[in-house]
Nucleic acid binder design. Structure first.
Length: 737
DNA sequence: ATTAGGCGATTTTTT
DNA sequence: ATCGCCTAAT
C-alpha cells in the first residue's frame, strides 16, 4: 500500500480508520477528495470487494473522476464500485426494486419543468387559479414537504391557512398522478427507496449486506431524506464515513441541513472525527481572506486553516462603472494573465451569483475572441426542441407518461389544441386510461372537430408504429427514424433563421448522444439513456481539456479549483443576493457562497463590483458588497476605473484609464492608459436628455436639454449642488452615471 | 377552435 | 431565451 505515503499523517489516519463511523471535517483544498479516493482504494486493497462499497458524491463528474483515480491505484477491481450521485445510485436501485412499490421499471423521471407542468395540470383539474396561486410556489412547498418527509396526509392535517390547504390538495393529486403516469420526480428518487427500506425489512437487509462500507462526499449539502437514507443503510454495520465542510454548505435553499452534521454525532456517539486543516490549494493571502470572511458567520464549527504555500499576489478588487466595464476589465486582466504570466485559458474561471450575469461577461469575451465554456445556464437537455424530442422517446419507453404525451401531442402541430386535449383527458379519466391508450379510441371521443380527430389519429398511428419498431431496431436507429418522420430537422432547416439552425444542431447533437451511448453500452436500451440524461448536471460535462475560460455560477464551482479565479458582481443585492428579506441565516449562506468562490482560487483572485448594472431590464445602482469590507485590507489591492464612454448603444470596447491605488498607508499610484483613447468623441456622442452625469468640478446632475451639434453641442445640466449650468460638451468632461 | 405572431414578464442558486 | 396571454386570421 505504497500509495498511502502520498498522504499527510492526518489524511492517512482518516483513510485507515475503516471500521465504524467516521466524520471528516475538511476545509477547502485540504485533500478531502483525496482522502475519499484513497480510503476506497485502501478498502479494496485490504480485500473488501468493490461491490460492497457505496460512495455517494455530489456530481456525476466528481464520481467519474474519483473512479478513474481509484482505478489507477488499484486497477480493475475498482470497476464494480457503487459510486455516483444520490439520485443516480438510487434510481439504479429503484429500477430493480420498483415493482415492490407498484411501479414498473420503465418509469419516467420528471425534472423540475415536467413536474411544474404537472402541477399546473393538477391545479387546473382542481380548479385552483394559477393567477392567484403561483404554480412555482406550490411546487416548491410540495418539494420541501417531501424533503422533510411530510406525507400527503400529514401535510393535510397540519395545513393552516388557505394557501397551505390548496397546496395540500395539489400535493395529493400530484402524487396520485405521478403514480398513474408511472413517473417519479427528483424527490421521489430518494423518498421511494426510503419508503421501501422502512416497509420491507428483507430488502433493507439485502442492501445492508450489499453496502458494507458507505462513504458520503459533500455531507454538508445532504438533506433530511438523504440523511435518513444513509442512516438506514448504515444502521447495521455502521461503517460509514462522511466528509464535509460546514463552511461550504450552500444548498440550504434546497433543503440541505447542517443539522445533519450535528445529528451524525448524536446518532453515532462512537464517531471518530478527523479534521483536515492544512490547505494545499491556495496562497496564504487567499486563504486568509477566506478565513476572515467566514469568521463573520455565527453558525460554524471553528477551524484553524493554515497553509505552507507562499503569500502570493494581493487579491485584486476591480471597481467598475457598470457591467460592461466589468466585462471589459476582466477581459484585459485575462489578457495580462495569459500573455504576461503564461496562464492557460483553461486555468481561468469567472464565477458569479446568478446565471443572468453571464450575458455581459460573454459579450466581452466574444468581442475579444477569447474562447469560453459556460457551465449551466440554459442547459442542453432543457432546450425546448431537445425536451420535445426526448418526450417522444420517454413516451415510447413508458406509455403511461401522460405528461410526455401532452408535451408532444401537438408538436409538430396537428390541430390538437387545448380543447381537443381537454376532451381527450376527460375521456381518459372516465375510463381510467392513459392518454396514449385513450388516443387509440379516437372515434369514440365526442365533441372533437374533424381536424382534431384527424390529428389524433395520425398521432396514435405514429406512436403505435414506433412502439412496435422499438423492439426491432436499436435505440439510436429508432430515434433517428422518428425524428426523420416527424420532420423536426427538416422544419428547422426550412426556417433558416439563426435560432432554427441552433435548434437543428441541438437535435442532431441529441441523436449523436444516443448513438454514442448505444455504442458505449452494450445492449443499452432507450430507458437506460433516458435515465442517464435526466440525471446529468451541468458540471458533469465540463470538459477540462478545451483551452477556454470557464464561466459558471458559484454553486457550480463547488468542488473545483482554478489557478486564476474571478468573482464578478460583489455588490449588495447580488452577492449577497437579496431575495425578500435577508435573514441572518440567509446572509450566512450567501457568505459561505462567497467563501466557496474565494477558496476555488489557487494563485490569483479577482473580485469585481460595478456601480451600475442592468438588472431586470433597468439600470440599477449598486453599492459594493459588505463581503469586500469583511476581507482584511492587507490582502487586497483596489483598482479603480475612470471610464468615459457614451452610451449603452456604443459597441466598441470601453476606453478606460485605470488608476491603481494600493490600499495601504504609503499609497502607490500608477496609471495605465489604454491605447487609442479618445474622450471627446465618446463624451459628446453619449450624453442624452434625462441622463445623470458627473462633472469634475460641479458634481452630479441631470441633463435637461441638448442643443447644437458636433463640436458646438451644448447641454443644460441641473447640478444637485450648484444648480443649472450651460456646458459646451467639447470641453466639459461629463461622466455618465 | 386553432394557430401564429407579438408583447411583456420573468431568472437565485440545482441533484 | 422561454412562457403566458392577447389578438387577428383561418
Amino acid at each position: 500500500m505504497s500509495f498511502l505515503n502520498e498522504l499527510n499523517s492526518k489524511q492517512q489516519e482518516a483513510v485507515k480508520t475503516v471500521e465504524g463511523p467516521v466524520m471528516v471535517v475538511a476545509g477547502p483544498g485540504s485533500g478531502k477528495t483525496r482522502v475519499l479516493t484513497y480510503r476506497i482504494a485502501y478498502l479494496i486493497s485490504i480485500g473488501v470487494p468493490a461491490y460492497r462499497i457505496l460512495a455517494l458524491t455530489f456530481t456525476n463528474k466528481a464520481a467519474s473522476e474519483m473512479k478513474e483515480r481509484i482505478h489507477k491505484l488499484v486497477g480493475e477491481k475498482s470497476r464494480q464500485l457503487w459510486m455516483g450521485t444520490f439520485h443516480s445510485v438510487f434510481a439504479r436501485i429503484l429500477r430493480v426494486e420498483c415493482e415492490k412499490l407498484e411501479y414498473q421499471k420503465n418509469f419516467s423521471i420528471y425534472d423540475e419543468t415536467d413536474s411544474l407542468s404537472m402541477i399546473k395540470t393538477c391545479m387546473e383539474s382542481l380548479s385552483i387559479s394559477s393567477q392567484q396561486y403561483h404554480p412555482r410556489a406550490i411546487r416548491s412547498r410540495i418539494s420541501s414537504a417531501k424533503n422533510q418527509l411530510i406525507s400527503v396526509q400529514e401535510y393535510a392535517d397540519r395545513s393552516l391557512d388557505i394557501f397551505e390547504q390548496k397546496t395540500s390538495a395539489v400535493y395529493s393529486d400530484y402524487q396520485k398522478r405521478l403514480k398513474q403516469n408511472n413517473a417519479m420526480d427528483f424527490d421521489d428518487l430518494l423518498l421511494k427507496p426510503l419508503e421501501l427500506f422502512k416497509s420491507d425489512k428483507k430488502v433493507l437487509d439485502k442492501y445492508h449486506e450489499y453496502f458494507r462500507f458507505i462513504l458520503v462526499d459533500e455531507y454538508q449539502d445532504t438533506n433530511r431524506v438523504q440523511y435518513a437514507l444513509i442512516n438506514s443503510l448504515a444502521s447495521k454495520y455502521k461503517n460509514i464515513c462522511v466528509v464535509g465542510d460546514d463552511a461550504q454548505s450552500i444548498y440550504a435553499f434546497r433543503g440541505a441541513d447542517i443539522k445533519n452534521i450535528l445529528d451524525f454525532r448524536r446518532d453515532y456517539p462512537e464517531v471518530t472525527t478527523f479534521r483536515l486543516e492544512q490547505n494545499y490549494r491556495s496562497t496564504t493571502t487567499i486563504l486568509s481572506a477566506a478565513d476572515y470572511l467566514i469568521k463573520h458567520n455565527v453558525d460554524q464549527i471553528s477551524k484553524n486553516l493554515w497553509t505552507d504555500n507562499p503569500a502570493g499576489d494581493a487579491i485584486t478588487v476591480l471597481s467598475c462603472e457598470d457591467d460592461r466595464d466589468e466585462g471589459a476589465r476582466i477581459v484585459s486582466q485575462i489578457f495580462e494573465q495569459s500573455n504576461k504570466l503564461k496562464i492557460d485559458l483553461k486555468d481561468i474561471a469567472i464565477t458569479y451569483r446568478t446565471n443572468a450575469q453571464s450575458r455581459s461577461l460573454e459579450e466581452a469575451l466574444r468581442k475579444n475572441s477569447i474562447p469560453y465554456v459556460i457551465v449551466g445556464g440554459i442547459e442542453f437537455y432543457q432546450r425546448k426542441e431537445v425536451k420535445d424530442t426526448l418526450a417522444y422517446l420517454r413516451l415510447l419507453v413508458n406509455p403511461q407518461d401522460n405528461e410526455g404525451f401532452l408535451r408532444i401531442a401537438n408538436y409538430p402541430t396537428r390541430g390538437l389544441g387545448d380543447a381537443a386535449l381537454q376532451r381527450l383527458q376527460s375521456f381518459a379519466a372516465e375510463r381510467q386510461l392513459s392518454l396514449l391508450v385513450a388516443a387509440q379510441h379516437t372515434v369514440e371521443i365526442e365533441g372533437l372537430s374533424k381536424k382534431a380527430k384527424h390529428g389524433l389519429l395520425m398521432l396514435s398511428t405514429l406512436l403505435r408504429k414506433y412502439n412496435e419498431l422499438k423492439n426491432e431496431v436499436s435505440a439510436s436507429e429508432l430515434s433517428r427514424s422518428l425524428v426523420d418522420e416527424l420532420g423536426i430537422l427538416r422544419s428547422f432547416k426550412e426556417e433558416g433563421t439563426v435560432e432554427a439552425l441552433s435548434r437543428w444542431e441541438n437535435v442532431q447533437e441529441l441523436l449523436s448522444a444516443i448513438s454514442e451511448f448505444t455504442s458505449e453500452h452494450e445492449n443499452a436500451a432507450l430507458e437506460d439513456f433516458l435515465q442517464e440524461v435526466s440525471l446529468v448536471s451541468a458540471v458533469d460535462d465540463l470538459d477540462g481539456n478545451r483551452n477556454a475560460v470557464t464561466l459558471m455560477t458559484l454553486h457550480s464551482a463547488k468542488g473545483l479549483e482554478y489557478p486564476v479565479v474571478f468573482i464578478a458582481g460583489l455588490e449588495e443585492g447580488l452577492l449577497p443576493l437579496y431575495s425578500t428579506v435577508l435573514e441572518r441565516k440567509e446572509l450566512e449562506e450567501e457568505r459561505r457562497l462567497c467563501y466557496v468562490g474565494i477558496t476555488r482560487a489557487m494563485q490569483k483572485l479577482y473580485l469585481t463590483h460595478a456601480r451600475t448594472r442592468y438588472r431586470f431590464g433597468d439600470v440599477s445602482y449598486q453599492s459594493p458588497s459588505r463581503f469586500l469590507e469583511e476581507i482584511p485590507k492587507e490582502c487586497i489591492e483596489i483598482v479603480e476605473s475612470k471610464i468615459f464612454y457614451p452610451s449603452r448603444a456604443y459597441t466598441g470596447v470601453p476606453k478606460q484609464v485605470n488608476t491603481r491605488i494600493k490600499r495601504s498607508n504609503d499609497a502607490e499610484y500608477h496609471t495605465d492608459v489604454m491605447p487609442d483613447y479618445d474622450s471627446k468623441e465618446c463624451v459628446v456622442n453619449g450624453v442624452k436628455v434625462g441622463m445623470m452625469v458627473e462633472h469634475v468640478v460641479f458634481g452630479r446632475g441631470k441633463v435637461l436639454s441638448l442643443a447644437g451639434s458636433g463640436d458646438s453641442l451644448k447641454a443644460v445640466v441641473e447640478f444637485t449642488l450648484v444648480g443649472r449650468k450651460n456646458l459646451l460638451l467639447k470641453y466639459a468632461k461629463l461622466n455618465i452615471i
